[in-house]
């Protein structure tokens, strides 16, 4: 079971309230799809400059594995407060701890409630993944 303290998107990002901020990352499922368990297969990650304003659904960065480049999409709207600069040089964090140490960006959100139509709770995300596996 994935963490219950956050919401999930169909493009496999998670978003979590933390005080005045929201924290965004990608799920273990997304990481597994990209690198099949080989942490060395993740090669690049581009994150946005702090201060950038993002709309919900907007691409805020990209991650590359040896096989594919994937967009990173903002689950909610807001302004980038900070980014996890360690990620760009230590991508293996993502394959190890995508839920905490592997956070990607922190936003000052436009709304303090995570109630976007597209957002799923952990149970709904599990069901979504199960369905996508056929």
């Amino acid at each position: 079971m994935r963490p219950n303290d956050r919401k999930y998107t169909k493009t496999h990002e998670w978003v979590k309230l933390s005080g005045e901020e929201v924290v965004i990352g990608i799920t273990d499922f997304a990481v597994q799809e990209l690198c099949s368990g080989n942490e060395g297969d993740l090669v690049y990650c581009d994150l946005p400059e702090p201060g950038r304003s993002l709309e919900a659904g907007e691409t805020f960065g990209e991650i590359e594995s040896v096989k594919a480049v994937s967009d990173l999409n903002a689950p909610v709207a807001g302004t980038v407060n900070s980014i996890n600069v360690q990620i760009e040089e230590h991508l293996e964090i993502l394959s190890r701890d995508p839920w905490n140490a592997g956070w990607l960006v922190k936003l000052a959100p436009r709304s303090k409630v995570l109630d976007g139509e597209e957002l799923m709770d952990a149970a709904a995300y599990e069901a979504f993944i199960a369905a996508s596996k056929h």
Binding site: Q86, H90, E92, I93, R96, D97, N100, A101
Partner: peptide
Amino acid sequence: AGIEFALALT
């Protein structure tokens, strides 16, 4: 100390 990337608590 901000060195979580050094810890493989998996």
